[in-house]
């Protein structure tokens, strides 16, 4: 069926859009990570700019606000010498779908080469990718609770930097899996790269139905799930989850699922702690862990630039 064709790859099997980690071959993930490696060096130089995307126009179109993610995409584009325009598109509640495609059509008329899109609805970047001119590339910067592929990539990039090899790792993702696009991207990235044991840990209310079908082991006890892990990813718990029937309170959540130094001690001694940010200290993570020596949360941010540069450069065909 037409709808099932892999939208992300062109007829030569090369990356054309980055919409999701799911369905991407390992080769492509590794190429992005290797390319990002070369950009880490660029970012550490005094002159942090390379001319790979000179003359290209990249439009950041954020239907859902996010200063941090948008900024890292802007920095990545600028370091590649692209022209960057960032738009915070206020979401029209009346003519949602229409406004997405209208917005994109308008921006296309300004000769965009690449769209970086964030939207509150799962799948929105697919709709856009299906409606842009064939030469235009789309990067998903987070769609609903579906995927956040560049975050997943920077997470695995960070893990690779610290752990070198995926083939003997045990990784745990902790918290609100249900609403997390980061979790989904990271799960697909890690399973594709060959991590033998991947765990998700959370209360049943925050675990998606049949999540084990994605190749993960499900734990509802943080203590049991953390035993012997090499990598812990803590997910942000949004405040709105505390109302209603998902969770009673932030403090009760922290008592069960908050990562404290005592609980982290159950993991391997050299375990690293990731968090996609922004953190809720005292809700999902204790400051002593967030700022502790096992935390790689700030390096994640740094590597995020290199990974996004790599994705943009590969999509634009600038690395061949």
């Amino acid at each position: 069926m037409l709808s099932k064709k892999n939208l992300q790859l062109n007829e030569r099997g090369e990356l054309h859009h980055l919409l999701a980690i799911e369905g991407l071959p390992r080769k492509i993930l590794e190429r992005i990570l290797d390319t990002a490696e070369s950009f880490v060096g660029v970012n550490e130089r005094e002159v942090k700019v390379v001319p790979l995307l000179r003359g290209k126009s990249i439009f950041n179109v954020f239907f859902e606000n996010s200063t941090r993610t948008r900024t890292t995409f802007e920095i990545a584009a600028k370091r590649l010498s692209a022209d960057v325009v960032s738009l915070d598109v206020a979401r029209s509640s009346t003519s949602k779908g229409e406004s997405i495609l209208d917005t994109i059509a308008n921006l296309s008329a300004m000769h965009a080469d690449m769209f970086v899109v964030r939207h509150a609805a799962s799948g929105a970047p697919y709709l856009i990718a299906q409606n842009v001119a064939p030469h235009v590339h789309v990067i998903n910067a987070g769609d609903g609770r579906h995927e956040h592929p560049t975050q997943g990539l920077l997470d695995v990039f960070t893990i690779r930097r610290y752990k070198k090899d995926f083939s003997n790792l045990t990784v745990a993702i902790v918290g609100d899996i249900l609403h997390s696009r980061v979790a989904r991207s990271q799960i697909h990235a890690l399973t594709t790269l060959g991590v033998p044991e991947l765990r998700v840990i959370g209360p049943q209310t925050l675990l998606p139905t049949e999540i084990e079908r994605l190749g993960v082991r499900v734990f509802t006890s943080l203590e049991a799930g953390l035993k012997g892990v090499d990598v812990v990813t803590m997910l942000r718990l949004q405040n709105e989850r505390m109302t209603g029937a998902l969770l009673p309170s932030a403090s009760e959540y922290f008592s069960r699922y908050g990562l404290t130094p005592q609980k982290l001690a159950l993991a391997k001694p050299d375990a690293i702690v990731l968090h996609p940010g922004p953190m809720n200290r005292g809700v999902e993570i204790d400051s002593a862990v967030a700022d502790g020596k096992q935390s790689v949360i700030l390096p994640q941010v740094t590597y995020g630039i290199a990974v996004r540069m790599a994705v943009m450069a590969i999509l634009a065909g600038a690395t061949r």
């Binding site: 609903g144 579906h146 995927e147 139905t209």
Partner: peptide, 15 residues
């Protein structure tokens, strides 16, 4: 449908 596909796609499920 609330199941594997909705979980993969990040869509709200109807059980």
């Amino acid at each position: 449908h609330d199941g594997e596909v909705s979980s993969r796609l990040g869509l709200n499920g109807i059980p």
